[in-house]
Amino acid sequence: METTAMHIANGIVDGPVSAVFAVLAVAALAFCVRKARNDLDERLAPMAGLVAAFIFAVQMLNFQVLPGVSGHLLGGTLAVILVGPWVGALCVSTVLIVQCLLFADGGLTALGLNITNMALLGTAAGYLLVAGLLRVLPRNARGLAATAFIASVVSVVVASQGFVLEYALGGTTELSLPWVSGTLAGVHALIGIGEGLIAATTVATVARVRPDLVYALRRFRQPIVVGTKVNA
C-alpha cells in the first residue's frame, strides 16, 4: 500500500456530525479572519504565506515514532509563535484545504473535522501554552525553543483528542472510546515530541536571523490594553 493519507478520511465519522463540524469550522475561520485583520501588517502578510508553505512541506515529512507507525507535524504551535493565533489558524487551514482539494489527503466530507482538530483545537491549545510560557521563560531564541517544544507536545495530543470527540459523536464502528482515546494520546505524545523538535529548531532559527518577524516576541509580552482602542 503506497497511499500517503495523513488526515481523517471520508466515512470514519458519519455525515451529520461531519456537517456540524464543517459549519463550526467555517464560523470559526470567519471569526479568525476578522481577528487576523488587526494583526496583518506589511511584514505579517507575506510571512503568513511562507508559514503556510513551510507547514505544507514539513507535513510531507513523516517520521517513524514506533515500528510501523509514523507521524508528521501538524504545525499549530509553530504558526502561533511565528504569525499569531488568528493568522496561524488560517495558515494551517490553508494547508489542509490545499491538501484536501489538490492532493486528495483528508476526505472532502471530513475537511471540517480536520480543520477543527488541527487548525482550531491544535492552534488554540498551542496559543494558550505559548502565551502562558512566555510569561515565565526568557524572551530569546532558547526560551522560544523551549516554549515551542512544550506547547507542541500538548497541542498535538489535544488535536488527537478532537478526533475522539468527533468519533464519539459520529463514529461508525463499535470500538471502546477509552481505548481509542488512550491509543491516540499515546502515539500523539510521541509525534508531539517530533513536532516539538522541528518547531523549536524552526522558531529558534527565525528568532536568531530575524527576531522582528517572530509574532510571539513582538506581541505576547505587551500588556493587554483593554478599552482604549478606538473603533475603526
Binding site: 517513524q64 510501523g68 510521541l190
Partner: peptide, 25 residues
C-alpha cells in the same frame, strides 16, 4: 521558500511510509 522547496521536493522522498498515528490507530 527555498528551504520549504528542498524539504517538500527532496527530503520528502526519505520520509517514513508507515501509516501515521491516526491511520495506524
Amino acid at each position: 521558500l527555498l528551504v520549504a522547496l528542498l524539504l517538500a521536493g527532496v527530503v520528502s522522498n526519505f520520509a517514513s511510509s508507515s501509516p501515521d498515528g491516526l491511520d495506524a490507530t
